[in-house]
């Protein structure tokens, strides 16, 4: 554990609290992609199956349980409690274009041909693209509520902080996980456009609006 990873994980936690806060205070999940949230549940469930097989630390266990539980809670909020505010007609990204290639990549790149490792690898690849339906929706509508952009910024910061974490681990432990690093760099790259608008508009007090 180093400060980059720790603050990365805190940023991830913050993003989830911001999202739940947005949905419950506005009593609306407008602007949030259900598909992206469903992908995150898939990511957490497939990756954290090792909860039952290997123990790393109390921190690790508590965080895993929190991520699974909170992502399921968000799906409940979107599908049940605030269902009328969820508009599937603008959440049109085709999931098979994401899930299919991730299955293939996991079968090619993994650390062992057993269910746990294959699902772990699948979850890493899937997480790297899980934000795409959300970004696609943002692109389509061309605008976002400020609170939604804070959610995305916290999520992007979490990914960005994992990069110095890997650099630190490479020098301090000689540890490199090529699958995590490659998928992580791709994932962080997907946020670059968003971050540009976030820094130049939202943090200057303007509304998040994309040029027409």
């Amino acid at each position: 554990m180093n400060i980059f990873r720790f603050f990365g994980d805190l940023s991830h936690l913050a993003s989830i609290f911001i999202l739940i806060h947005k949905i419950t205070t506005t009593r609306s999940c407008r602007g949030i992609s259900f598909k992206t949230q469903a992908l995150y549940v898939t990511v957490f469930v497939t990756r954290y199956l090792d909860l039952f097989t290997s123990y790393v630390s109390l921190y690790n266990t508590v965080m895993k349980i929190f991520f699974i539980a909170s992502s399921c809670y968000i799906l409940y909020l979107m599908r049940v409690r605030y269902r009328p505010t969820n508009d599937p007609s603008i959440d049109t990204f085709r999931l098979e274009y994401l899930v299919g290639p991730c299955v293939v990549l996991a079968l090619i790149f993994n650390y062992g041909y057993n269910p746990t490792e294959l699902l772990w690898s699948f979850s890493i690849f899937l997480e790297s693209v899980a934000i795409l339906p959300q970004l696609f929706m943002l692109q389509r509508t061309g605008e976002a509520e400020t609170i939604t952009t804070h959610y995305l910024a916290a999520l992007g910061a979490y990914r960005a902080l994992y990069i110095p974490n890997w650099i630190y681990r490479y020098f301090s432990e000689g540890y490199v996980d090529p699958i995590s690093v490659t998928a992580g760099l791709v994932q962080t790259g997907l946020y670059l456009d968003f971050f540009y608008v976030y820094f130049t508009k939202v943090l200057q007090g303007q509304k998040f609006e994309l040029p027409a």
Partner: peptide, 10 residues
């Protein structure tokens, strides 16, 4: 080898 390694990152 990466076999039997633990995935300690979240």
């Amino acid at each position: 080898s990466h076999e039997h390694r633990e995935h300690d990152e979240l």
